[in-house]
Amino acid sequence: MTALAPIRLSSRLRANQGVLVVAALLVILLIFGAFISDRFRTTSNILNIFEQSTGLALVSLGQTLAILTGGIDLSVGSMISLLSTLTSGLIAGKVSMVLPVAIGILLLGLLIGICNGLLIIWLRVHPLIVTLGMSAVLQGIVLLYSLGPAGSVPPSFNFLAYGKVLGLPIGAVFILVLFLLVALFLRYARLGRYIYAVGDDEVGARLMGLPRARVMLTVYGFSGFCCGLAAIYLTSRFSVGQPYTGLNYTLASITPVVVGGTLLSGGKGGVFGTLLGVYLISLLNNVLNFMDVSTHYQLIAQGLIVIAAVSIYVEKKKRV
């Protein structure tokens, strides 16, 4: 981390306190898990956790950038539903269609995201509202397209979800590489720095003549692209897409971002925190599974984590 953060150590420690807490929690959960079940300790279970977290990691990555600018992308859930339904619907079991459809899906995700960005810039409406509206529109469209699971994918397609390279799940490796690239972008590209500046003080960014529009288009476009990736991955995992595939991802994608220490008000945070957040949540669900806790309570646990995380990270309240 040293190489990535030239901020003085004291400030850096203070800034990253939360991330350290998350990392510590991760370790504690691992130890705890190892105690409660022998099966937990197996390599296959650990790989399983990585595998399960891939979809969430992809969506949360895009979400992190949107939140860093002080915005949010609430259309991710519907977007995933639409894109994954289209993926299996258009491939319709034909091997020859896999590549063109995959490319098309990624482009479509990018395009929808750019639409979000354009609306935010043109209408001057808060991203929350724009993406909420977009979410409803996309949900309607996907239901127009199909009311249930659509089409199918060739069996070889689930290689993406279950395949391995060098014994590691493809998805997990891909995630690590992608997160690293985005982290480098945020740190070393001018546009990456502007993402932080816009999130820190949007009016100031305008006064400074920073390319706010380009930042917005990049961020929401990227979030859409990530949804495309997630949709393809999830279709591969479940072998078919249906209009509610993405339903839970809207909230779920925000949780790891907040847990990972990115401020909802923008300007502070990063993608590594998000990745830790993703692993923490997947690990927690895994441990709860081993403890035979029903999914209902897992839902409660997740809600409580969001509440805890946002109240911990909230910046000191100003009283005047």
Partner: peptide, 22 residues
């Protein structure tokens, strides 16, 4: 279409009422 209309309405109404100063 209900859902789609809902989505459009929320964005347009907001564009009408709560434009930001940015």
């Amino acid at each position: 279409l209900q859902i789609i209309i809902k989505g459009l309405v929320i964005v347009l109404a907001a564009a009408f009422y709560v434009r930001r100063r940015i």
